[in-house]
Amino acid sequence: MTEEFKLRIFTEPQQGATYDDLLRVARTAEAAGYDAFFRSDHYLKMGSVTGEPGPTDAWITLAGLARETSRLRLGTLMTAGTFRLPGPLAIAVAQVDQMSGGRVELGLGSGWYADEHTAYGIPFPSLKERFDRYAEQLAIVTGLWAAEPGEPFAFDGEYYQLADSPALPKPVQRPGPPVLIGGVGKKRTPELAARYASEFNLPFVDADTAAAQFERVDAACAAIGREPGEIVRSAALVLCAGKDDAEIARRAGAIGREVEELRTNGLAGTPAEVVDRIGAWRERTGITRLYLQVLDLDDLDHLELVASSVAPQLG
């Protein structure tokens, strides 16, 4: 059976947003029929914005939204492995899964933004060590969730050791919430995706780059005897839609971008143009989910325009 194509909302709150801002966006997304609300996991703004009033914690945010929404899937693109020990992360995500009635998804990455680590006193090892830790984190988080009730969990890695863990609490979703992995690394990333991912996401790349990476993930699945079709293919692109050229230009200006650049690198244009662009991506890459990066969180009409004029045409 072919999976239904789904649109998801993706926010970057480190650029300047409160919890109440995110709640408004999530409630709007739910009412408009979007499949999910995701957020980044960063503690420092990027670019020329001030970032005020300051960062919000991803999993505290999602815990709040779990109690204030009823249908939306909730998750991260991506939680940084450098921010949290794997055992406490498994506990937190399982608890939010319980709080949401089983609507949580964990996007987990190795961490990459050095400046936010410096700003908040978070250790930032070398790339090799971060990735080695990341591999162990994936094994631990998924292992804790999947362990049978009453069955102690143990792990003896280079960086993490767990002994006689009760592996509690258990998430609602069994054997655990979906795990998202992403990125363009050509060897270890596809290998980890083949072993642990429910979904593989390519953020802010062109369709040819995405297609090539999906092929590497498929090959990594085949190498360990996993059916490649078990992994959902998805992408993330910045959104800048409008009813006409003036509205498109206004929205591009509000996020400090040029319309033509967004037409090339994102989803910019009228609803008809956005539909065509998504269609080209689907044909080239086989994605069945698209994360719409929404950067102006005050512009709720933007979400409603896409929900009413784009989503119905996607089939």
Rank of each mutant, 00 (worst) to 15 (best):
E4H: 13
E4S: 15
I9V: 15
T11P: 10
T11V: 15
E12Q: 15
A17S: 13
D20L: 12
D20V: 03
L23R: 14
V25D: 03
A26S: 14
T28C: 14
A36N: 08
A36C: 08
D41P: 11
G47R: 08
S48A: 13
G51Q: 06
E52N: 05
P55C: 03
A63F: 12
G64N: 05
T76I: 10
P88W: 10
A94Y: 08
V96N: 04
S100F: 13
G101I: 08
V104K: 00
W112L: 03
D115E: 15
F124V: 00
P125M: 02
E129C: 03
A135G: 12
V141M: 03
P152I: 02
A163V: 11
A167M: 06
R174C: 07
V179G: 07
V179H: 07
V184D: 00
F200Q: 00
N201W: 11
L202P: 00
A211V: 07
F214T: 00
A220N: 02
A220C: 09
A222Y: 01
G225C: 03
R226E: 01
E227K: 03
E227P: 01
A236F: 09
L237I: 00
V238P: 04
C240I: 10
K243T: 06
A246I: 09
I248E: 02
A252Q: 01
T264Y: 05
G266N: 06
G269E: 05
A272P: 04
L295H: 09
L300A: 06
L300D: 01
L303D: 04
L305A: 04
V306C: 11
G315V: 11
